[in-house]
């Protein structure tokens, strides 16, 4: 299991488009992807779960990947979040 902490930098947070991009990318990996936010576990492969979590700019989150391909998944997640989803 690997994890990393982030402060969401992009103005829109995990809105429709970033959430779709994120979930689509995470679904490529066999491991589980969980976003820990506000004491909740959000399924990082689910666009609907991510949107429902209302993760905004400035939110503190941890991304946890567990299973096959966890390092690659976390690296891609970090790149997307830190680049602000190219916003």
């Amino acid at each position: 299991m690997v994890s990393k902490h982030f402060t969401v930098p992009n103005a829109q947070g995990f809105h429709m488009r970033p959430a779709t991009t994120f979930a689509t990318a995470m679904n490529k990996y066999p491991c589980t992807v969980t976003i820990k936010f506000n004491g909740n576990d959000v399924n990082g492969k689910s666009l609907m779960h991510i949107m429902a979590a209302c993760i905004k700019v400035g939110s503190e989150i941890d991304v946890v990947c567990d299973g096959e391909g966890e390092n690659e998944a976390l690296a891609e997640a970090a790149e997307m979040i830190e680049s602000g989803f190219g916003e």
Partner: peptide
């Protein structure tokens, strides 16, 4: 097209 992403969502 967003509706398609929704219906294919693993959660839903």
């Amino acid at each position: 097209l967003g509706h398609i992403s929704m219906v294919q969502d693993p959660a839903l």
